[in-house]
Every structure is written in structure tokens, then in C-alpha cells.
């Protein structure tokens, strides 16, 4: 294809400065388009309620009242705590379960090991929506409706996390484990004093990814609770939106309360996030 075009006169390349300027213009335009919704959310959340639809890029009389009101008068302080509790405990347990299982897969021999691993991996092909009805029915029959346990429990077996951890732990030298065993360490001691410290980067990654997943696990949290005291931030926002369509500035403050923690978390740990989220895809 290239050779067909050799008769065309090669174009003179643009001067490097102009090229760089054009690239930066493109990059900035891209950033404006991608980030505009979040900018607009924040700026609206800082406007006076009467100014909700003003086109001012920055609020004429900025106020934090919207945040105060939605946190205090509309229960978002409690929803925020609920989200923290649910996401933290789920992230802790899911990471722990995945680490324990990954250790077995990476460093131990046992009956049906490879078959079991393939069987677990096969479940990754099943679409998430498929689980809504049966998981709801199981939780309901276990009498767990309207509990935090219900929000967390079904998602504690993270197969993708297990896969990430197994790959990582396979790089830990077996000699470290053997010598620790010779020193008389028990199975759990080996796990605690060797495997966990050496796997901290992947543990941190999986903790962050599961925390992020549970922070935004809106659909499931919505269907297993109808008790206001258990609402998480997105569920609270859904209910608030239905009840108070007109309170736009408050709604945007509520959305900001849901988005900012993950945004900040991402800002400080972006490398872990980006690598963790794309690793499964890249190897495929």
C-alpha cells in the first residue's frame, strides 16, 4: 500500500514547534471534553440553588451550603459512612480470600488443581446481569435482605483478583518458603510472614480495585436494601433524585460526594489502578 504511493511527493513535515502546539491543543481539547461533566457537576454543586441553571463557568456567589444540607438534612453523611463500611470490608475480605486461594494455586500441589483453576476462570465468561435474579433469591432465602452482609457477601470470590494474585505469587522463590518451614513455621505463619509481605503491591492493587468496585456496585446495593439507614451513596442519590427532582444543586453535591473519594484515590494510586484494570486485557 505504501509503495503504491511513492510517486506522490513527500509532504514537508510541520516545524516541530507548530507540531507540539497542535498536539497540546488536541490534548487540552480532549481533556476539556472528557472532564467537562465533572467540572459542571462541581461548579453546579457550588452554586446558589436559584442559580442552578446559570451558565457561569464559576459560580457568581459560591457556597458550600449544598454540601452541608445534603450531608445533614438528607442523610448523605450516613450514606457516606455506609459506603465506606461496605467498600472497606468487602475489599478487605475479597482480597484476603483471593490471597489465601492464590497462595494455594501458586505454591501448593493438590488434587484437581488445574481442573479447578480452569473451572474458576470459566466463570469469567458469565455476564454480570445473569446473577441478579438468583443471587437476590439466595440472599433472600438466607434471610439476609436489608443487611450489609447481603451487599458484600456474593462478591467475595473475585476470580480475576485470584488470577492476578496467583500470577504474582508464582514469582516468589520457593526456597524462601522451604527455609521458613525448616525453621518450624506453620502454614499460616508462612502465609503471614512471607507471602503477604512479598505480595504487598498486588494486594494493594486488588484492595483498591475491589474498593472501587464496591463503591460503585449500585445495582446490587439497590436491590438488597429498602432500609434508608443502610443506603450507600449511589443508592441514596437514586432515591434523592426520585424524591427531589428539582433540587439540582443538592443533587450535584450528592453526586460529587459519591465521585470525589474515588477520584482522589485514583489520583494518588493511578499506576496501580491502570495496571490492575488493564492487565487481564493485555495478556489476552
Amino acid at each position: 500500500m505504501i509503495s503504491q504511493n511513492t510517486n506522490r511527493r513527500p509532504q514537508r513535515p510541520l516545524p516541530p514547534q507548530l507540531q507540539a502546539t497542535l498536539l497540546y491543543l488536541g490534548l487540552i481539547l480532549g481533556a476539556i471534553v472528557v472532564l467537562f461533566p465533572f467540572f459542571w457537576m462541581l461548579t453546579t454543586a457550588l452554586k446558589q440553588p436559584g442559580q442552578a441553571y446559570s451558565l457561569d463557568l464559576l459560580p457568581a456567589e459560591p457556597t458550600l451550603d449544598n454540601f452541608g444540607r445534603i450531608l445533614r438534612d438528607y442523610g448523605f453523611a450516613r450514606y457516606f459512612m455506609n459506603s465506606i463500611i461496605v467498600a472497606t470490608s468487602a475489599a478487605f475480605l475479597a482480597t484476603l480470600f483471593a490471597a489465601l486461594a492464590a497462595y494455594a494455586f501458586a505454591k501448593k500441589d493438590f488434587l484437581l488443581k488445574n481442573q479447578l483453576f480452569l473451572f474458576l476462570l470459566a466463570s469469567l465468561m458469565i455476564p454480570g446481569m445473569m446473577y441478579m435474579v438468583p443471587q437476590f433469591a439466595i440472599i433472600s432465602r438466607l434471610g439476609l435482605m436489608n443487611t450489609r452482609t447481603a451487599m458484600v457477601l456474593p462478591h467475595l470470590a473475585n476470580v480475576f483478583g485470584l488470577f492476578l494474585m496467583k500470577q504474582f505469587m508464582e514469582t516468589i522463590p520457593g526456597s524462601l518458603i522451604d527455609s521458613s518451614r525448616i525453621d518450624g513455621a506453620s502454614e499460616l505463619q508462612v502465609f503471614r510472614s512471607i507471602i503477604v509481605p512479598l505480595s504487598l503491591p498486588i494486594i494493594a492493587t486488588l484492595f483498591l480495585l475491589t474498593f472501587q468496585f464496591h463503591w460503585g456496585n449500585f445495582l446490587w446495593q439497590l436491590i438488597v436494601t429498602n432500609k434508608e439507614s443502610l443506603y450507600t451513596v449511589p443508592v441514596g442519590l437514586a432515591m434523592f433524585r426520585d424524591a427531589h427532582e428539582e433540587l439540582v444543586t443538592l443533587k450535584m453535591a450528592g453526586a460529587a460526594i459519591s465521585i470525589i473519594p474515588i477520584g482522589v484515590l485514583f489520583f494518588f494510586t493511578q499506576r496501580l489502578f491502570i495496571e490492575g484494570m488493564t492487565r487481564g486485557a493485555v495478556k489476552g
Partner: peptide
Amino acid sequence: YFMPYVLDMFVVGVV
């Protein structure tokens, strides 16, 4: 550019 990907679709939709 990557940041919005980690945020909750429902909340972004509300915005």
C-alpha cells in the same frame, strides 16, 4: 483521560 473510567456509571449518568 483514564480517571472517569473508575467512576460509577450511575452517578456520572445523573450528571
